[in-house]
Design a protein around this nucleic acid. Structure first.
Lengths: 350, 350
DNA sequence: AAGTCTAACGTCAACGTTGACGTCAACGTT
DNA sequence: AACGTTGACGTCAACGTTGACGTTAGACTT
């Protein structure tokens, strides 16, 4: 009764044979196109259901030269909260456009390229990329073919495209000024890679604020603090200096958590101020609660998705690249409001 | 010089025309097949690069009936940490098999089906699903077509397939017993949906332990604590009872964080014990540090991916379904070791 | 009665790629 | 000199689907 090859999915051909119609009529029914009698249409649908027919969208989008109704997202698995929120924002907009969001995650910067190209080979309608590699010029071909692309969190290098980023410089500046305003003169900084633009911009904001206040800064910046352990060690090193900083600025949330760990370990949570870049779930539950600079990551996702769809829906890919810069906000919770221990003489004077 | 239609990607045809070879020879070169002279092969590669040629994998896998070298993952965006770790585990194994992992996230249980079917229509080689809907019988067609499928975290309903889950009952039992051993007799439970098997199994472990110890339990279980706010409210309600619980068991990490918030708000963090199911980043930094039952989510991802690939690589999809149950571990950090306030009389007696 | 129209179908070719198989010239063998 | 072998190509058909364009038979017009 069922002579089809095993382990192969039924096609319109199979449905058509069973119903006694041409494959084209089946296609019509399944796409809701007119030109098939009510009765036969009904029959087609029944048989399709019975056979477990699932239209092969690969073949479909091969034929219909245009849309696959799919957008690709490429992110590196690293910072915790970022990923979730970003996708949520993208999903929200994509759902409104009836598109599917497929995310490819990469462990390393090197695999970014293969993930991106794999999505491109699958002919997604657009790409949202959080670049982690040093160079995105491998996307020149896609750019030439006018594939809509948006870079999020950091701008691409070696290629020009729409970009959605947070105002990292302003965030770094705000954090630093907040600390300076409370009397801190020695502010330590912990970051991962100085080559990442997010990191270097946050640090630039820090340096700008320091310079404005007439503070030296460079000797208190520690790069290459990878993972929570790395960040913790970097903090411990800073705290162990002859002239230790009285405040810390952690450039992302992994660093922030490492810093909290270092401060708790050294029993200094209540003496040394801390501000972290990017909020995290339990920031308000720690002791003291952690003051942070937040970026609205979900909004970044929404903006990126909107940019993609506006390109897909006609805005020419050759038109001027847009760079969206989203503001950051300081949320004071306690750790950033700790004042430096003042010299005894001045304390008496106060 | 460049007369191709705008905004269309170059195909092997374009490369072939430029080189003056047949399309088949180009295909050979691009696949590293033999039968093309060194010199021409070189030329083909150069031209392909110049034109920005990217093989259309849709067409390729349409032709080669077999693999797309892609596996699909469908998860619901909800619990924080779970997602990241799971994908990391899956990615690790997939990378070893040279496959791409494409993740579709869904906001709601209703959209699970459309995401799964979209991946199926794109002919992924296998599906890893964290079911959130109530029923997965919509996958019958895929099962009939022997599409490899693995369900993670919860078993599917309405269809049988390989499954990878944590030992939720044992975890719930261990948490409860840990509290009972420290003298707690009234243990409150906060969970989201009693209909989710993870939740109900953890609660079953709790009830088993209570029954064994001769404790009543049911009136201290609070369901439908959605989101951190919901969990916080549910806890506050429990703590406000005439006979409040002396310990809390939060059934997932969102609930745990809500519970911490409630306890801190009521200044009871050091009086009421707390154990959370599933670890989270800052659990050891809270005050007191939070005792948790951990499940190795990354390992769940690895096992699921291994199961998928073993099905893809030949293990017949008709062979017996395997259910992998991973152990859970209790990590004592402080919050779970708080003892109940004993009545004065007994305290003197001790 | 011949013509026009329409609904309900069908045929064909094409999307981009690759397996199966064919052609042809150059070469080595006996 | 006839034969087989080999390397370097090319042709064709097919994967599953759909747009463009037939082909019928019946209903409706004049």
């Amino acid at each position: 009764m069922d002579e089809r090859r095993l382990s192969t999915r039924p096609t319109m051909r199979d449905v058509a044979d069973r119903v006694g119609l041409s494959i084209k009529s089946v296609s019509r029914v399944l796409n809701g196109d007119p030109g098939v009698s009510e009765a036969k249409a009904e029959h087609v649908l029944t048989v399709a259901r019975e056979l477990g027919f699932r239209r092969n969208d690969l073949a479909r989008s091969l034929r219909l030269q245009d849309r696959t109704e799919t957008i690709g997202v490429v992110v590196r698995q690293a910072s915790t909260r970022f990923y979730d929120s970003l996708i949520r924002g993208i999903d929200e907009v994509a759902a409104r456009h009836g598109a599917l969001v497929l995310t490819a995650t990469t462990q390393s910067a090197e695999r970014e390229q293969s993930a991106v190209l794999a999505l491109s080979s699958r002919r997604v309608d657009g790409l949202i990329i959080v670049p982690s590699g040093e160079d995105q010029s491998y996307l020149r071909a896609e750019a030439a073919a006018r594939m809509p692309m948006v870079f999020v969190d950091r701008p691409a290098r070696g290629i020009s495209a729409d970009t959605v980023v947070a105002d990292n410089v302003a965030g770094g500046y705000a954090a630093t000024q907040h600390l300076i305003a409370r009397g801190h003169q020695r502010i330590g900084v912990i970051g991962t890679r100085s080559s990442a633009s997010t990191m270097s911009e946050r640090a630039r904001g820090y340096r700008d604020a320091c310079r404005e206040a007439g503070l030296a800064s460079e000797d208190l910046v520690r790069w290459n603090a990878h993972g929570q352990e790395g960040a913790q060690q970097a903090c411990e090193e800073l705290l162990g200096l002859a002239h230790p900083p009285t405040a810390l600025f952690a450039l992302n949330n992994v660093c922030t958590i490492g810093a909290v760990r270092a401060l708790q370990g050294a029993q200094l949570s209540r003496q040394v101020a801390l501000i972290g870049f990017d909020d995290f779930d339990t920031a308000d539950l720690l002791n003291p609660p952690v003051t942070v600079i937040t970026q609205d990551v979900e909004e970044m996702g929404r903006r990126a998705a909107e940019a993609i769809f506006s390109r897909i829906d006609g805005r020419p890919t050759t038109s001027r690249r847009e760079k969206t810069v989203l503001p950051t906000t300081l949320i004071a919770r306690g750790s950033g409001e700790i004042e430096p221990d003042r010299p005894v003489a001045r304390r008496i004077g106060a």
